[in-house]
């Protein structure tokens, strides 16, 4: 296990130096999400050595960790008390730091039922573009003192500053988890998916691919067993399919084509051909496809459909405010200046 180490002073000095020397910085954790978002402007600022669990209070369901702490270390720590980070951010290539997870804001297959990382963040400590060390939020469950800057950091790709540490809400692990697979055509699968949102069920993750619907069922033994038996002719499969899906190691993701991600509103059925070219998660709200095969334009009414690569993301409609917002945190445009323009 990586030894805890407080590297915050060096990070702070680096930022101050960058301000003084008018240099730019690209912030980096483990670099496991370089294919998703990677700044190439400026000197690399490594947060990976700023590691360690600062405080873990199982009774409070809270953990406070330094940004460079590997996701695996956090998972192992929580596991000792039968707890977990419910939003289950991807660990591409088996790695990744919590700082990188917060900055990219990605969630695992349980998103609709367990929330995302934003929902779990209680507070952050950060360095802004003036070289100031700031703390927002806290480690308590409810806190409305001041604007909620800590949750805004989730998915911001580091453009507001260097995340030093994060306080997170954690969850008790369910007593048991089971995964079942059902052979269903897409329309029938869709009806089941709708039920997982509209009815109280034990489902905590879904995936539809190639004529099969996978469901993860979790809770206490009796309720999971009851849920299993409510799906006739199901096959029980290994739970690790969710890890493979989360980390894009599932065979669907093994392609050299450009991977695309499409988000749909809740309750809108993605219009897909019944084939292998789309993989549908989040009760239908997230669809993965590859550029050549899966024509994501045909997926129906959608929120967005873009390459799984934020480095080249199109400017957002709120770009006027976004530019000002960046300046409010980083007036000299030090951080990841080529991202989210």
């Amino acid at each position: 296990m990586t030894q805890p180490f407080d590297d915050s002073q060096r990070l702070l000095d680096s930022v101050k130096q960058a301000v003084a020397q008018k240099r730019q910085l690209s912030i980096l954790g483990h670099g496991t999400k370089a294919h998703y978002a990677r700044s190439t402007h400026g000197d690399a600022l490594q947060s990976r050595d700023h590691v360690g669990v600062i405080e873990y209070q199982p009774d409070e369901l809270t953990i406070s960790v330094r940004a460079g702490t590997p996701l695996t270390v956090i998972a192992e720590t929580l596991d000792q008390h039968n707890q977990m980070l419910a939003c289950d951010p991807p660990r591409f290539f088996g790695g990744g730091t919590i700082g990188g997870a917060v900055a990219s804001g990605l969630s695992g297959p349980g998103r609709p039922w367990y929330g995302n990382l934003r929902d779990a963040v209680l507070g952050v400590e950060m360095i802004n573009g003036l070289g100031e060390r700031l703390t927002f939020g806290g480690s308590v469950m409810k806190n409305v003192a001041g604007f909620d800057i800590s949750r805004m950091m989730v998915g911001s790709l580091g453009v507001f500053g260097v995340i030093l540490s994060v306080n997170l809400r954690v969850h008790p692990k369910p007593e048991i988890e089971r995964t079942i697979s059902l052979d269903l055509n897409w329309d029938d699968a869709w009806s089941v998916l709708c039920e997982t949102i509209a009815k109280p069920t034990a489902v905590t993750a879904t995936c539809y691919w190639s004529g099969s619907l996978y469901l993860r069922l979790a809770g206490n033994r009796a309720s999971v067993e009851e849920a299993c038996s409510s799906f006739p002719s199901n096959t029980e499969i290994e739970n690790d399919v969710w890890v493979h899906l989360r980390d894009h190691e599932h065979s669907f993701f093994q392609s050299s084509e450009e991977l695309r991600r499409t988000w749909l509103g809740r309750g809108l059925q993605p219009q897909i051909e019944n084939d292998e070219s789309n993989l549908i998660e989040w009760a239908g709200a997230q669809v993965w496809s590859f550029k050549v095969h899966g024509d994501s334009a045909a997926l129906g009414q959608r929120i967005s459909s873009e390459p799984f690569n934020r480095s080249s993301a199109a400017p957002s409609t709120e770009s006027k405010y976004m530019r000002r917002l960046r300046r409010a945190f980083d007036p000299h445009q030090l951080f990841n200046s080529d991202l989210l323009l």
């Binding site: 909620d148 989730v154 989040w282």
Partner: peptide
């Protein structure tokens, strides 16, 4: 005089999520 549309009826939206900033503001 601008109207900002933040989020929608799905779980995520592209771009930086500003909902947390407006909730509690």
């Amino acid at each position: 005089g601008d109207e900002l549309t933040l989020g929608g009826n799905g779980y995520e939206s592209s771009g930086i999520e500003l909902i947390p900033l407006f909730v509690g503001s």
